[in-house]
Design a protein around this nucleic acid. Structure first.
Lengths: 139, 139
DNA sequence: CTAATGGCTCTAGTCACTAGAGGTTCAAGA
DNA sequence: TCTTGAACCTCTAGTGACTAGAGCCATTAG
């Protein structure tokens, strides 16, 4: 049996975050001891480990909830889990592409300036003027 | 003179967002007409355009505030603006690196499954078990 | 037995908006 | 001039995923 602090250490999820997960129904309400403190068993550890790993992979809590519900079902068909994972992968790839455009643009802007002073700052000018940008970096 | 709606169209920033920017002091309070409606001139357009561009580049509103204040100062030294831009670039690069790790891991997980069913879903198992991961994709 | 640590609930704050209610003003057509 | 509908106003509350703090109670080591 783990206390909430022990579970926190074991998983790397902060104590208030664990309580938050319970509050929003992502974790089932923990059992309590005589003094009303939460006590967790192996299945609590596994559930929280699953959440932690999925969060690290960038899944939204809502998606994690769906994945966990899938897991409970008997003879789970894999299709839904796979769909969610692929959607997540697409999102991550899209974010990478977007960030790479930003990085290009920021490099250009940052290189305008040698850190000297006097006159109008070219960095500020570049930030103010989208038309100077090489590409459509966003909208 | 622009109404808030015209300014919104001209910049691509939504109307409630413009009011929000004013509320938090990012935009100076707009002048009003006889009927208490906001009216903007050229400088309003430019200020909002600056904010929009910087937001598109991923700058936080707090950083944008600093940049705009810098812009107002006479003989602005460029160093601070440059520092903020470079910090932003570093952040973007770090996020890209992190996301690339995630993408690798997600590809591995998504490929475990052909969408068939029966037995324990390998996608769910992989999500639950960090030790299967090739790399330390997060913490 | 006492002190330190850890746990409890509850409220409010973060960031950057977004949505909705309920009311007022503007601009264009009849 | 009147009317209608769009655009505007303020205010409150909600989003996601936590984080911080107040004020109190439980557990545990010495």
């Amino acid at each position: 049996m783990f206390s909430i602090g022990a579970l926190s250490k074991a998983t790397g999820v902060k104590v208030p975050t664990i309580r938050y997960y319970e509050e929003i129904g992502l974790l089932p309400p923990a059992g309590r001891n005589a003094g009303n403190q939460r006590r967790y068993g192996q299945e609590g550890l596994e559930a929280l480990g699953f959440i932690k790993h999925a969060r690290d992979l960038g899944f939204a809590l809502e998606d994690i909830k769906v994945l966990m519900d899938l897991d409970g079902e008997l003879g789970t068909d894999c299709a839904e889990a796979n769909r969610i994972a692929c959607a997540q992968l697409d999102q991550v790839r899209a974010r990478i592409a977007r960030l790479e455009q930003l990085a290009t643009e920021l490099e250009r802007i940052a290189h305008l300036c040698d850190g000297g002073n006097g006159g109008q700052c070219k960095v500020l000018t570049a930030l103010g003027d989208h038309s100077q940008c090489a590409a459509d970096h966003g909208s």
